[in-house]
Simulated scan of single mutants.
Amino acid sequence: MTGTVPSDDVELELTGRIRTASNASFLARLGDVSVIYKPVAGERPLWDFPDGRLADREVAAYLVSEALGWDVVPRTWLRDGPLGEGMVQLWQDVDPEQDAVDLVPVDDLPDDGWRLVLEGDGDDGPVALIHEDSEALRRMAVFDVVVNNADRKGAHVLALPDGRRHGVDHGLTFHAEHKLRTVLWGWIGDPLTADEADGVGRVRSALSGSLGSTLAPLLTPDELEALDDRCARLLASPVFPEPHGPMPAVPWPVF
């Protein structure tokens, strides 16, 4: 597991509020450990995600990340806090000098090391949405397909100083219907590596055992069945999928 979790006996102390979040989100501390705390009581109802709780899906996303074995999601768990039960996640210090996802002028695209997602009109002319062409982001993109992430914005990709990349904000995941919205579309049609396919296989195998049992209180039976189906489809056709369906393929705003 990624990170050390203090005992539930340690008091969760609020230190600030994240005002830009759409649901109640707080900076907090557990002893000397910095965390994010999102109380269930602060969740806003969503018409397209009527079942379950955002906090449960955040924890479920972490559990799938662990089953993949790729450390995509920081350590995330449920516990009580000053505003009741909520999702708690280890805080991650990002490197402000690094951007794993970026918007650049179309005439200033990097020569290599990046993947183009789309082009559009910006305030000062045409711009391109790009992301790193890296193992870490490939794994995150596979993770997003598996969990059916409906909200992979650029700001939800954290670039850490040591070169690692973490994904956060996974409340809009695991819907039984196709909801994939992401900025990580740069590998459409590319085959999965053996390691990536093996990771998906580990998730599918674990769903019939300990992972399935752990996810059962967090997701609906339909969501669990859909999770297994997505893994099966990805293993049967091990390539990065292309967008499909009537919904937008990229979240808005993109950051």
Rank of each mutant, 00 (worst) to 15 (best):
M1Q: 06
D8N: 10
D8C: 13
D9C: 08
L12K: 07
R17F: 11
R19W: 02
R19H: 06
S22P: 03
A24H: 14
S25D: 05
A28P: 11
A28L: 09
R29K: 14
D32Y: 02
V35H: 08
V35W: 05
P39D: 13
P39F: 10
G42P: 07
E43L: 11
E43F: 09
E43W: 10
D48M: 01
F49C: 01
F49S: 02
F49G: 00
P50W: 08
R53G: 04
A61W: 01
V64P: 05
S65T: 06
L68Y: 01
L68T: 07
D71K: 13
V73G: 00
P74D: 00
L78P: 05
L78H: 12
D80V: 05
G81F: 06
G86A: 08
V88I: 13
V88N: 02
D93S: 11
D95V: 02
E97I: 05
D99L: 15
V101L: 02
D102F: 04
V106F: 00
V106Q: 09
D107N: 15
L109Y: 15
L109R: 11
L118G: 03
D123F: 14
D123T: 08
D124H: 11
A128R: 15
H131P: 03
S134M: 06
E135F: 04
R138T: 00
D144Y: 06
N148P: 07
A150L: 01
K153V: 01
G167M: 00
H170N: 12
L172M: 13
F174V: 09
A176F: 06
A176N: 02
E177H: 14
L180Y: 00
L180E: 01
T182A: 01
W185Y: 10
W185H: 11
G186Q: 07
I188C: 12
G189L: 04
D190T: 13
D190I: 00
P191H: 01
P191E: 05
A194K: 13
A194W: 12
G199H: 12
R202S: 10
V203H: 03
S205L: 14
G209A: 15
S210L: 09
L211T: 09
G212L: 07
G212E: 10
S213V: 13
L215K: 14
L218E: 02
P221C: 04
D222L: 14
E223K: 07
E223C: 02
E223P: 02
L224K: 05
L224A: 03
D229G: 12
A232Y: 05
L234F: 09
P238Q: 01
P243N: 08
G245N: 14
M247S: 06
P251H: 15
P251M: 10
V254K: 06
F255N: 14
F255H: 12
